[in-house]
Design a protein around this nucleic acid. Structure first.
Length: 553
RNA sequence: GGGGCGUUAGCUCAACUGGAUAGAGCAACGGCCUUCUAAGCCGUCGGUUAAGGGUUCGAGUCCCCUACGUCCCGCCA
């Protein structure tokens, strides 16, 4: 947390004290300080006088007047204070308030933006979790970009983050993967085999079959348990490796890869049912085993074990979430596609039943992405294997542009991904706007270095005095708070907005003012410090989105 | 029928626990490169925040209602 941000907090506390002295109930006081959009309304402002009007039974303006008289301006680097409009108190800060941020940034460097907002709470974020039955596609890309960015933000805001991928490697889909692989293998060897009903028709399955053929020849033409197990595992691992490679090239990594199959092997799935049974919320009906989830807010009860004795997908998922709780996390976040949102209440019901801790689970629902090609929706079908994969997307559009695009929209909104726009007009993507600012900065710093001009480290930069420079400084100061807000609201898109704002402030400053001036080495040194601080903040914020900060463009 | 999410400028989207004149990018128009990168800057144009009602000093934001879009409502995952 930087000094400027702390100063805001201190000022808040100062105001709180003043208000209490005016005779307000201290439990009701929630002082809000904000940075007005309109700069004629000051650098900081508070609406607290208006909020107190009713309780104190005085006009907001009078209250504001009384508050202002008691404020210690010097201690909080306040130049002057105005009361405006219906009762806003506007603070105009002095040069020291803004310029001291530079030293903070330069000193903290890549740590700038960190805060202890999360209080080291242990938080587990599960995302992507695609079945290892094929390539990742567009929807996964959005989930991956948002999930990974959220993790980076949470980490910087002081949470202890675990990134987790849950591998559904025990269900029907893996079964179909195994059968599809076997079929393709047999077809390679000249047999007229038919694909299973819900088979996977992608080229990748054919590739797997070819590899198996290469390894084992025609050894596995006969239908045996051994063949099934071998092919199943081979195909699963092949697909999983492919997913890992694609994610890595998308700058996404995980700390924990959890396996559904492992839950079975460790008997955690059976155990989950028994634990629910011991609580008295399991019953048998129509030959199936039911969980009375409606007792915990679900709209109906759910089947855990079907009448054919197999388990529904919910059952291992309950075991999985209980397992996560058992591992001691304070918060669990599931990042889910919109098509799974109805799934959350039943999962929470199980957690509530077993631990009473269902509040620890948060679901971040990500709305659907439509792929637009040639001006119309491009439907992807698993059956034909026709889909736009993450890998294709990276090759055509590039990691930076994709990540920025996906993260820049609120996850609550559906979005269209227009492929033609993304590839053809990629220069118009806002990500380049931000990266360009960084490249410009690097160019300035390179030239300064050639001229042996150096930035200086000071407590106060009295030669920095232009409005454009102050706008940049204000943005720099906002960074830690922005990260904290993004973390608490689980809203990564706040960071992309910030990046654009900061880049804009810098571009504007750049055009208005020349940094390198051989005639005035002292001022150049101070401005170079500002430029460096901007570089650091831009780099740190781009890094949160997983986007590169190029030195040249 | 029930529920989740959405509806803001011509297009794609913002707007921090309710705040001051609702902002960016793209598109359109007009300026700015003998000066650190013009992938840039400055300016202009563009709005009944889907419609209607309510709450209050104050609503894009909260409540109610209607319409439209989308997703879910399985002993599929």
């Amino acid at each position: 947390m930087n000094k400027v941000y702390n100063l805001q907090e201190e000022l808040k506390e100062h105001l709180r004290q003043i208000i209490i002295d005016l005779g307000c109930d201290k439990d009701k006081i929630n002082v809000i300080i904000e940075e007005p959009k309109e700069k004629s309304n000051g650098d900081l402002a508070t609406n607290c006088a208006m909020q107190l009007a009713r309780e104190l039974k005085k006009s907001p303006k009078m209250i504001a007047q009384e508050i202002v008289e008691k404020i210690n301006k010097e201690e909080y680097n306040i130049e002057r204070i105005e009361i405006a409009g219906p009762g806003f108190i506007n603070f105009f800060m002095n040069n020291k308030y803004l310029t001291q941020i530079i030293k903070q940034v330069l000193t903290l460097n890549e740590q700038y933006g960190r805060s202890d907002t999360g209080k080291k709470q242990r938080i587990n974020v599960e995302f992507v979790s695609a079945n290892p039955t094929g390539d990742l596609h567009l929807g996964h890309a959005r989930g991956a970009a948002i999930g990974d960015t959220l993790c980076r933000i949470l980490d910087m805001a002081g949470f202890n983050v675990t990134r987790e991928y849950y591998i559904n490697d025990a269900g029907n889909q893996i079964h179909n993967l195994a059968l599809s692989t076997i079929c393709r293998y047999e077809q390679l060897l000249g047999k007229n085999s038919e694909m299973p009903e819900d088979g996977y028709y992608g080229q990748d399955i054919v590739d797997i079959a070819k590899k198996l053929n290469l390894l084992y020849g025609d050894k596995y033409l006969e239908d045996t348990k051994e063949r099934y197990d071998l092919f199943r595992n081979f195909a699963k691992n092949y697909e999983l490796e492919k997913i890992k490679v694609d994610l890595a090239s998308f700058n996404v990594t995980f700390d924990v890869w959890s396996s559904e199959e492992a839950l079975y092997k460790e008997h955690k799935v059976e155990e989950a049912i028994e634990r629910l049974r011991n609580k008295g919320y399991i019953y048998e009906s129509e030959g199936a085993t039911w969980f009375k989830s409606s007792a915990f807010g679900d709209d109906k009860d759910r089947v855990l074990r079907k009448s054919d004795n197999s388990l529904t997908y919910l059952t291992p998922d309950i075991a999985y979430h209980i397992d996560k709780l058992d591992r001691g996390y304070d918060i669990l976040i599931d990042i889910l596609g919109a098509d799974h949102h109805g799934y959350v209440p039943r999962l929470k019901a199980s957690m509530e039943c077993l631990t009473g801790d269902s509040d620890k689970l948060e679901a971040l629902i990500i709305q659907m992405v439509r792929l637009i090609k040639n001006g119309e929706e491009y439907k992807m079908s698993k059956r034909s294997g026709k889909a736009l994969t993450l890998k294709d997307l990276i090759d055509e559009v590039g990691v930076d542009a994709i990540r920025f695009f996906f993260v820049s929209r609120s996850s609550d909104s559906q979005m269209d991904f227009d492929l033609d726009l993304a590839t053809k007009q990629s220069n118009e993507n806002p990500v380049y706007y931000a990266q360009y600012a960084h490249a410009r900065i690097c160019s300035i710093l390179r030239q300064a270095e050639e001229k042996k001009l150096e930035s200086v480290l000071l407590d106060e930069y009295h030669l920095i005095d232009s409005d454009k420079a102050f706008e940049v400084l204000k943005k720099l100061a906002e960074f830690p708070k922005t990260v904290a807000t993004g973390a608490l609201k689980r809203a990564p898109h706040i960071i992309t907005n910030y990046v654009i704002d900061l880049a804009q402030a810098f571009h504007s400053f750049y055009n208005a003012e020349k940094v390198i001036n051989d005639e005035d080495i002292e001022k150049t040194g101070q401005l170079l410090a500002l430029v460096k601080a901007t570089q650091i903040t831009l780099r740190n914020s781009l890094n949160l989105i997983g986007v590169s900060a190029p030195e040249k463009m």
